[in-house]
């Protein structure tokens, strides 16, 4: 005998102090926050309330640049995903690289593309696109 079924698991997660700040500022101001660690001096992005490496509580969040550098990437059937280190941050963010059809290289310069209508989610950033493309628009 085999028994089959499925599970529905509801959830309601509190983002906590620093991540809430990050999401609110992203939604309302379209800016990306990082948190400085007083011990290792790194700026952690996205913002967090303590440094996982040192255990120290972080200082007041700082605005990091929407422009950054591709640290690594992978092309998948669902799109291109990359690790992007924003200028002014010492850690990378996992996100989509746009457009999927572009020729990607490690070290490529990119810029966050934000949704015009934002809800306070990491997907308020649609992804990171080549810096040249955004400069062409500007």
């Amino acid at each position: 005998m085999i028994r089959e079924g499925s599970i529905h698991i509801p959830f309601t997660y509190a983002a906590g102090r620093a991540a809430s700040r990050f999401l609110v500022v992203l939604r309302d101001e379209g800016r990306i926050l990082g948190s400085p660690c007083p011990a290792c001096r790194r700026v952690l992005c996205p913002a967090r309330s303590f440094c996982p490496r040192c255990g120290e509580e972080t200082g007041e969040p700082v605005v990091v640049d929407p422009a950054g550098t591709v640290v690594s990437f992978t092309e998948t059937a669902a799109g291109v995903f990359g690790l992007v280190r924003p200028d002014g941050a010492d850690t990378a963010m996992l996100h989509r690289l746009l457009p999927a059809g572009a020729k990607w290289t490690i070290g490529a310069r990119v810029r966050a593309r934000l949704l015009p209508e934002r809800t306070g989610s990491i997907t308020d950033i649609e992804g990171f696109e080549p810096l040249e493309a955004t400069e062409d628009h500007a």
Binding site: A14, S49, F50
Partner: peptide
């Protein structure tokens, strides 16, 4: 309800 803290913040 401790929704003032995330899970890692509560643990910390």
């Amino acid at each position: 309800c401790r929704d003032d803290a995330s899970q890692p913040e509560l643990v910390r």
